[in-house]
Amino acid sequence: MQDYLLNNNLIGISDVDTRKLVRHIRTKGVMNAVISSEIPDEEELISMAKEWDSMEGLELATKVTRKEAQTVSSDGPYKIAAFDYGIKQNIINNFVNRGCTLRIFPAEADLEEVKAWNADGYFFSNGPGDPKASARYGLPMVNYAKQTGKPLFGICLGHQLMALSEGIETKKMFVGHRGANQPVMNKKTGLVEITTQNHGFTVDEDLINTDKVEVTHINLNDNTIEGLRFKKFKGISVQYHPEASPGPHDSSYLFDQFMKLVKQSSDYEEPIEISTTDKAQN
């Protein structure tokens, strides 16, 4: 594992009381920090931590997005345009395993290229940074997708961009949600999913416009918004990670739900399967 860290140029610190530090952050709120194995001056390190850029207002998706659009295919009949703001590999796997040909566009995609792809559905990925800072390049794509009449699906940052596109604000959380054990209730079914989460910003629950969205999922720990269904266009989005990786697979049905919307919108006709039971009855 030391080799793994070295190969990835990762700096770290061990043998610290992580539980005490976590309780400290949960009381005081999220803050910046510095790790050093070369500077022994504590005052200098504290001052570096104070001066480090705050995550609020920080645009980071362009630092992790791919440089050019790429197609990943299962040779399936359904074309999805996915916007990469830091897309996780298992999200790509989930689409490909459901018969999709995915064209993954970079964060600052060329709209003409997106139009030319003529997708059956649009996906807005997870990613780092403040969603408001990604709105510059994210909202034009969300707004384009909305007017095509095809369904939209957003995860994490994608969910926040879709909310912002409907004029619903996002805000920074006191302490973010990061783990694989967050209970989320699906308000329609009443069922609770145990979910993987990773977010420091959230859709502001006090600024929800019920003419534009329906809140479909909520966090049972603190009532933060976990899922939305959009009323003015065919769109669903979740704050959490149905692709898990890591985490439980309780929420993978969301990919099936989106695919149902995609199939309804697509011109592709699925071949009718003739079951052997039907034949026997005839």
Partner: peptide, 20 residues
């Protein structure tokens, strides 16, 4: 104070924790 792991150097950012 703790023990250095990985590369020697200095880094910083928002301090997050994950409970997985």
């Amino acid at each position: 104070k703790g023990r250095a792991i990985g590369k020697t150097g200095t880094t910083g950012g928002e301090l997050c924790f994950n409970t997985s």
